[in-house]
C-alpha cells in the first residue's frame, strides 16, 4: 500500500537518508528500529510531506505522492502521531481532536468513539491540551490522528517520556485501533515491544536500512548488531 523507492532526504546540505526502500501492506504493522539519528524520524517526515523528496520516491496505493504537500498527503489517509505529542497549546482537548478531522475523511472514528477508547479525555474535553499529563496528551495525539480515519498511522516514538503504566495503557489500546483496518509504522525504543507489536521490522542505521525481516523469525543478535550499525 505504502512504498518508498530509493528515498533520500536532506536537511540543508546534510544528507539524512541514503536511498531507503520500504513497503507496508494493508493491515500490517511495521516497526522502524535504530539508534537516535539513524533516520527513523526523517523517513516519517519525508513520507508525510514535511520534508521534500522526488515524486516517485514515495508511492501510495500505486500513485507517486513524493511531491505533494503535507496537507494533501494527510487527506489521502496518511496520519502521523509526532514525537513529543506536539498538541496545539491554544486549543482545548476537544478542539485538538476536532482539528484531526480537518481532512474530512468519513469512517469508523468519531469524537464519540475516541472518548469511548480513552474515557479520561471526555472528562477533560474542555481543558487546554497541554494541561494534561504526558500519557493523556499521547492519547489526544493518537485520537487526533485517528479522527482523520487514516489508512495508515505513523507513530513516532510512541512511548518516549511516558510512565511505564501509561505505556501499558497505550499498548493495550493499540490492538483495538489496528483492528479497525489500519496499517501502521511504529518507532519504539523498546526493542521487545517493537518486535512484539509489529509484523515486520526495518533496522535503520546512518540513513540506510541495514536489516529487515519478519518479527516472528527475528534474530535478536543480528538486530542488535544492525542497531548499533557495526
Amino acid at each position: 500500500m505504502l512504498e518508498t523507492r530509493g528515498l533520500t532526504s536532506f536537511y540543508g546540505d546534510f544528507q539524512a537518508l541514503f536511498g531507503i526502500d520500504i513497503h507496508v501492506n494493508e493491515n500490517e504493522i511495521v516497526s522502524f528500529i535504530g539508534a537516535n539519528g539513524a533516520g527513523k524520524t526523517t523517513a516519517m517526515r519525508t513520507i508525510t510531506g514535511l520534508l521534500p523528496c522526488d515524486n516517485d520516491m514515495v508511492t501510495w496505493k500505486e500513485k507517486p505522492i513524493g511531491q505533494l504537500r503535507a496537507d494533501q498527503i494527510a487527506k489521502l489517509g496518511i496520519a502521523m502521531v509526532p514525537e513529543g505529542r506536539q498538541l496545539f497549546p491554544s486549543l482545548s482537548v476537544e478542539e485538538n481532536l476536532i482539528i484531526g478531522a480537518q481532512s474530512k475523511r468519513a469512517g469508523f472514528w468519531t469524537l464519540a468513539k475516541i472518548y469511548e477508547l480513552f474515557p479520561i479525555l471526555s472528562e477533560r474535553r474542555s481543558q487546554g491540551a497541554t494541561t494534561l499529563s504526558g500519557g493523556q496528551q499521547q492519547m489526544v495525539a493518537i485520537g487526533r490522528a485517528l479522527m482523520s480515519n487514516p489508512d495508515i498511522i505513523l507513530f513516532d516514538e510512541i512511548s518516549l517520556g511516558l510512565a511505564p503504566i501509561v505505556i501499558n495503557q497505550i499498548y493495550d489500546a493499540l490492538p483495538d485501533i489496528i483492528n479497525q483496518g489500519l496499517s501502521a509504522i511504529i518507532v519504539e525504543q523498546d526493542l521487545n515491544r517493537a518486535l512484539h507489536i509489529s509484523d515486520r521490522y526495518y533496522c535503520l542505521s546512518e540513513g540506510c536500512i541495514t536489516l529487515t525481516g519478519n518479527t516472528d523469525s527475528a534474530d535478536r543478535e543480528k538486530i542488535s548488531t544492525a542497531y548499533f550499525g557495526i
Binding site: T48, G49, L50, R69, A70, D71, Q72, A74, K75, A79, M80, P82, Q86, F88, P89, S90, L91, E95, I98, I99, G100, Q102, S103, K104, R144, S148
Partner: peptide
C-alpha cells in the same frame, strides 16, 4: 479560528492535520 490558532501554534503539525498553511 481553530485553524488560525493551530497554525499559529505549530504550522508544521497543522499541515499534518490537512490544513494548507
Amino acid at each position: 479560528g481553530r485553524a488560525f490558532r493551530a497554525t499559529s501554534d505549530n504550522a508544521e503539525i497543522a499541515q499534518l492535520m490537512g490544513l494548507n498553511k
